[in-house]
């Protein structure tokens, strides 16, 4: 469905952020992208959705294919029309619009036809939003805003969701709720998802397949269950020792914390 082949991303023509990445999302699949700060996860999503163009960045090598069509030159609105909805980091809601208006913006690119039933669908997935539909979105809690943003993307009838840190700055209970709903959306609507997360545990539980990114390169990939078993992932991403118990960073020798992959 979505393929990245040897993608290299540069900002301002010189700053190389992504160095030759290949990844793939199958129809109906949930794929997670793990990595530390600055590894390039968000940049990959921006390269797919075209938001990169707004930041003076571009795919300088390789290409991005979506359903057999090359999309790395497309503007964000065009990738959205093609069925890729990017839920950006930091809950980019339209603060001054009401919840319902926010949701309706997602349907602007489609005709009038099914807007109403789409709206009802969003409210069934997120019953909380139905009760606050007239409220100004800027005053909602972080979790509710995340729901608005996901609901807004759902209004665009996507084939693929790009989710950038959906758990960022949200109460743990709500995180669970949101990921449960995302699971239901994936199951019922058949929407594929590519999710970027710093919280490796959540991401690996949620996804079918995972890629680990470091310094703009993919260093490990495989089915999520397998990645969870990987010793290095356990130690560096999940914070577990061999025995499966929590381990204090005090016990580490500092030089062993850096892992060289290649």
């Amino acid at each position: 469905m979505l393929q990245l082949v040897n993608v290299e991303v540069r900002y301002h023509e010189v700053i190389l952020v992504i160095r030759g990445i290949s990844l793939e999302v199958q129809p109906g699949q949930i794929v997670s992208l793990l990595g530390a700060n600055g590894a390039g996860k968000t940049t990959i999503l921006k390269a797919i959705s075209g938001i990169l163009h707004h930041e003076d960045g571009k795919v300088s090598e390789g290409f991005v294919n979506f359903q057999g069509r090359r999309i790395d030159k497309l503007e964000p609105y065009a990738t959205a029309e093609a069925g890729i909805l990017h839920v950006m980091e930091g809950r980019r809601i339209f603060e001054h619009l009401s919840v319902e208006e926010n949701l309706l913006t997602g349907a602007i690119m489609h005709g009038n036809g099914k807007t109403h039933s789409d709206l009802e669908k969003v409210y069934t997935y997120f019953p909380k939003l139905a009760s606050v539909r007239k409220r100004t979105a800027g005053y909602l809690s972080g979790g509710e805003q995340q729901m608005v943003v996901i609901g807004r993307a759902l209004m665009g009838r996507p084939k693929l969701f790009l989710l950038d840190e959906p758990s960022l700055g949200i109460a743990p209970l709500l995180i669970k709720e949101i990921f449960d709903i995302l699971n239901a959306i994936n199951r019922d609507e058949g929407i594929s998802m590519l999710v970027v997360e710093q919280n490796a545990r959540i991401a690996l539980d949620f996804s079918n397949y995972g890629y680990v990114l470091e310094n703009g390169r993919i260093v490990l990939d495989g089915p999520s269950d397998k990645i969870k078993q990987n010793e290095d992932i356990k130690e560096f991403y999940l914070g577990l020792s061999e025995l499966g118990s929590r381990r204090s960073y005090k016990d580490f020798k500092h030089y062993s914390r850096r892992k060289r992959w290649l």
Partner: peptide, 9 residues
Amino acid sequence: IAAGSVGIR
């Protein structure tokens, strides 16, 4: 930018 990302031209 968010407007572009939801398909608004």
